[in-house]
């Protein structure tokens, strides 16, 4: 018998606190798989955000830091600048990265900090109970956009990969999803590349992962994946937005 699938070593043997069907768990596992396959657990420092993944420091076997809301890229900068040969990643949600931490994100990218950012876009604030996120879609109902997000009143969503790909310091940006095994495989490759780029000192790599929040979207996990396909993917197209390796 050959083991074709099991828990990666870099993922701690503790249960996740996430709701049933929340795709955070899939992405955590993909990050840990990348750390395993590159053999970098002992050299890696992860930065957890504020939001649903605030406890991410409990879920990875590498050294971890819990940052203030939105500040993970600044914390990562401090870690990386003092340890240029270590591997540093942040794991951030949409509120953390694209609202309160927009400045830290944009400037870490434009400085070309040689770090890896894993960005979870599920178009809602999960931890606080379903409020509007910077990536909430037009018309999407949340507890703070109860009549649906009206761009005239509540502004427009931010397309993070598109925005960041205009900046020179960015090495790699890809938007992936984790709604099907095929897409999970694609996400896995993207995350691995984002870490490999760092080892090869190429600059900042970001992988945006379209994710679900069944609880706050008010759907079953399966329906949430379908809602993501039907509503998020047209607004946030999957694909590679920047790759310094591309010819």
């Amino acid at each position: 018998m050959a083991v074709v699938f099991d828990k990666p070593h870099a993922l701690s043997p503790v249960p996740f606190h996430y709701c049933p069907g929340c795709t955070h768990g899939i992405v955590h596992r993909l990050v840990a798989e990348a750390i395993d396959s590159l053999g970098i657990e002992g050299d890696t420092i992860g930065i957890a955000p504020v939001g649903c993944s605030v406890f991410a420091y409990n879920y990875f076997e590498c050294d971890m830091i819990e940052a203030a809301h939105g500040r993970a890229p600044a914390v990562a900068t401090g870690v990386k600048r003092t340890n240029p040969d270590k591997i540093v990643f942040t794991y951030q949600g949409d509120g953390d990265l694209a609202a309160i931490g927009t400045a830290e994100t944009v400037h870490a990218v434009t400085r070309g900090e040689n770090i890896t950012i894993i960005f979870i876009n599920n178009a809602i604030y999960g931890m606080t109970g379903g409020q509007m996120a910077p990536t909430t879609l037009p018309g999407q109902v949340t507890t703070t956009s109860p009549y649906g997000r009206n761009p005239i009143v509540q502004g427009n969503p931010i397309r993070v990969c598109e925005m960041l790909s205009t900046l020179d310091g960015l090495a790699f940006a890809q938007r992936v999803a984790v709604d099907t095994p095929a897409h999970v495989n694609q996400a896995k490759k993207a995350i691995e590349k984002a870490f490999k780029n760092q080892i090869e000192k190429k600059g900042l790599s970001i992988v945006e992962v379209l994710s679900t929040c069944p609880t706050n979207w008010g759907m079953t996990p399966g329906d949430a994946l379908q809602w993501m396909r039907d509503n998020m993917m047209p607004y946030y197209p999957l694909g590679v937005y920047k790759d310094v390796d591309a010819k």
Partner: peptide, 19 residues
């Protein structure tokens, strides 16, 4: 095929293949 394990958010599933 391990598709179940790939989609599992809680790393519940271990897959072994007979070779």
């Amino acid at each position: 095929c391990a598709m179940c394990a790939m989609m599992c958010p809680d790393v519940v599933i271990k897959v072994e293949k007979n070779i």
